[in-house]
Design a binder for these strands. Structure first.
Lengths: 164, 164
DNA sequence: GCTAATCCTGACAAGTTTGTCAGGTTCGGA
DNA sequence: TCCGAACCTGACAAACTTGTCAGGATTAGC
């Protein structure tokens, strides 16, 4: 399970915008050059990444001199899962079933898990977790496992929930 | 975030071994050819994957005629995270910090999250989740999100748990 | 101790991802 | 109105991943 370079850098760029969001005037934007400099990336590469993010509506551009990029929504409302999906790392359900079927035309898991490849199980799961985590979590602390209750994972019957 | 082909196929091979585990005599093993056939993969490729798994002690080989592969431990004791790490998709902590630093020599996150790239936060998190899920979960049902209680992820204070 | 079945392993071609380049388009301000 | 700062975008070389190939090493059974 790998984070692609685009995901890493895309998230970093988004985090730069999130940090700056409070400092900007209404209508203000952050320049690609500044982001590139702070992250140690080339301007061309940051442009490419921001273009991808822009196409899907997470960030928007302001053209012309004094232009740049900014988030379209408050950073608290953007989830890690959303950003990762946009950056191409997380394939959608439809794409999944056409991959990883080996040499045969149809999925070969005759019994047990039916047609679902392992892929789907794991990706589904990761999706549902990261869709619930806002990017601001990464600004503060990384993702703290202590806030995820893992009781019952991998068992058939949910373990009793200790009175919270 | 991508599952690599090796992870997908490696997990499938392990699951084949796990399914067969009960049917085998003590000392018995499953042949590469059978696994390859059931998964629709080439024998050569399955050999390569099993060799990787063998090197790290998750499976072991029996050479000669009637040889093959088998798990070294009961399948309930093998976690998805362990298998994924072995198959090369999940880099260890040490490897992580030497990657993804952009064009500069040192990590450029001056403030906020210190030296940790986004990479580390997310990978740490995924590790700690998958290390708790045995591979047998994939045999039964995929990973059922309903058994993972996500309340509070990404918030500072855990949300109340609704009565089960 | 042969033989054949089976695992073992390094080298390599094809495909994908990564990051750069070069040239375009838009638009605020002198 | 024109200039230059800044975003926009397709094409491409380098690096990595994937899956195959060919030949080698081990050992059960005769």
């Amino acid at each position: 399970m790998k984070i692609t370079a685009q995901e890493e850098y895309g998230l970093r760029c988004i985090l730069q915008l999130a940090r700056e969001q409070g400092n900007l005037d209404a209508g203000g934007a952050m320049q690609v050059r500044d982001i590139a400099e702070r992250e140690g990336l080339s301007v061309a590469y940051v442009e490419k990444i921001l273009w991808t993010l822009g196409r899907s509506g997470i960030v928007e551009s302001v053209r012309g001199p004094k232009g740049g990029y900014r988030l379209t929504r408050p950073s608290e409302e953007i989830s890690i899962g959303e950003v990762m999906r946009v950056l191409g790392g997380m394939p959608s359900q439809e794409e999944i079933c056409s991959q990883f079927t080996g040499n045969q035309e149809t999925c070969v898991h005759h019994d047990g898990c039916g047609l679902r490849p392992v892929w789907v199980s794991i990706t589904d799961f990761v999706h549902s977790v990261f869709d619930k985590i806002p990017i601001t979590t990464l600004l503060r602390q990384g993702i703290d496992i202590q806030y995820v209750r893992l009781d019952g994972v991998g068992r058939h019957r949910p373990a009793p929930v200790p009175g919270d």
